[in-house]
Amino acid sequence: MKKILTALALGASAVFASGAAGAATLDQVKKDGVLKCGVSTGLPGFSNPNEKGEWTGLDVDLCRAVAAAILDDPTKVRFTPLTAKDRFTALQSGEVDVLSRNSTWTSSRDATQGLNFTAANYYDGQGFLVRKALGVKSAMELNGASVCTQSGTTTELNVADFFRTNNLQYEVVAFQGQEETLKAYESGRCEVFTSDSSQLYALRLKLANKDEHMVLPELISKEPLATAVRQGDDQWFDIVKWVHFAMLNAEEAGVTSKNVQEMLSSPNPDIRRMLGVEGNFGEQLGLTKDWVVRIVGKVGNYGEAFDRNVGAGSPLQIERGKNALWTKGGLQYGPPIR
């Protein structure tokens, strides 16, 4: 229903709007004093409300960092939970300004959905969750299986590719919401639950007997989970992109939420430029000189956000792996601030 309403809203705006697309999002956010951020409907570690009803997670922290950079307050964010199906329409229609919702960066989404991906804040791949009792050790043994998944995802397409290329029979049962998908898997409708592997670890925690389930070793796809903004507002695109890069650069330079104030007096020119002691790199982006101080001081660097939400300091216990900094053999690489 919501989907249809959003689509109608988009239709109406496309039909009646007078053409000037891509109004300055930054000005709007400053004027409203709040950032509109699209997240998932609840995915532990990435975007999930805690006991107090506050949104937490790696994807959530990206929005908080953007709000900190612009409004100097990481709590000035209005989160909109979106299912896989609704997310792009919500961004197109202006319901949200930033889509930070475990969305895979693909060429067709970039080219035809009226959006631009800024950067991947988590490199993932698709995996399979099965019951241990099934006695299956590899995805290649899944011939004839029923697979539960969420509709409107890359997951739904990858699963079709995987079974087809390996000449295995399968049946896909696709649901619109994550709750329904998980319930159907739990009730035994499917042998296999499939999604991005980080989400398998997160959702396994939601199952009644989590120790009866296991993740198979195969990763069947590349899933760079990236942040997206509406196409046509280059300044906004730059800001969201560079907030992520700033968090990476801060981690690389060893600037953390604890030591950022002391770091202001560091002699290191990289750090001095980053923290706005030298130059006006933040102002060039449309922000303030101290934008990185705000981000790191109020939200933390990328490593801190990772550990707290999905890494060693969280129930998920995911290793840095591909998401380590490039200096540590991973893929996370922030271009220089200068």
Binding site: K3, F88, T89, Q113, G152, E156
Partner: peptide, 15 residues
Amino acid sequence: AGTTLNQTGQAIEII
């Protein structure tokens, strides 16, 4: 109106 809309992004036509 679900999967196809999401994969193609063509909300207006599909609705």
